[in-house]
Amino acid sequence: MYWTLFWTFLKIGTFTIGGGYAMLPLIQREVVDRGWLTKEDFIDLFSVAQSLPGIFAVNISIFVGYKLKKIKGGMVCAFGTVLPSFLIILTIALFFTQVQDNVWVEKIFKGLRPAVVALIAVPCLTTARSIKLTYKEMIIPVIAALLIWQLSVSPVYIILAAIIGGLIYGLKIKRH
């Protein structure tokens, strides 16, 4: 059973490119179709894993593992999910130090870096759209970004303030 869990999550970790949500259909197929969890259970796990901090894929693999085989299961599943990434990146890191001063590699990365910035800037807008941020609410992300960027405020404080603000607004103000 532990081997099956390990292999399943190893597969999930290997074949998902581009982040946590891309692995969702794969996880669902492996976990639900094997009869490990019902579809309803899986959707519940998904929504809770989403509201937890940390890496989504790791969260969901620990949840599934724990549900099936308690702490050991959680460890095995998390290990399976993390291992492919770990080995691939380690190989690249070992190799990249040999070539990073190569003129060609430098040229490639000169072109690549501004594109990476764009890759991060776009989700900022798409997230704003998907959570239906109003113009009035826009003040929250603007202030948060300025505090971090210009005043070097730790994002941890921003997150704590956001949680406290959300609690006050959601539980006190919105009710009246």
Binding site: I120, A121, C124, L133, I140, P141, A144, W149, I163, Y169
Partner: peptide, 24 residues
């Protein structure tokens, strides 16, 4: 409580992503 916290966390996430892009 969790859903209330996310009323603040969700808009702040947009700011966190923006800060990541701006710092680069």
């Amino acid at each position: 409580y969790v859903s209330a916290a996310f009323l603040g966390l969700r808009p702040a996430t947009v700011g966190l992503i923006a800060a990541a892009a701006l710092m680069l």
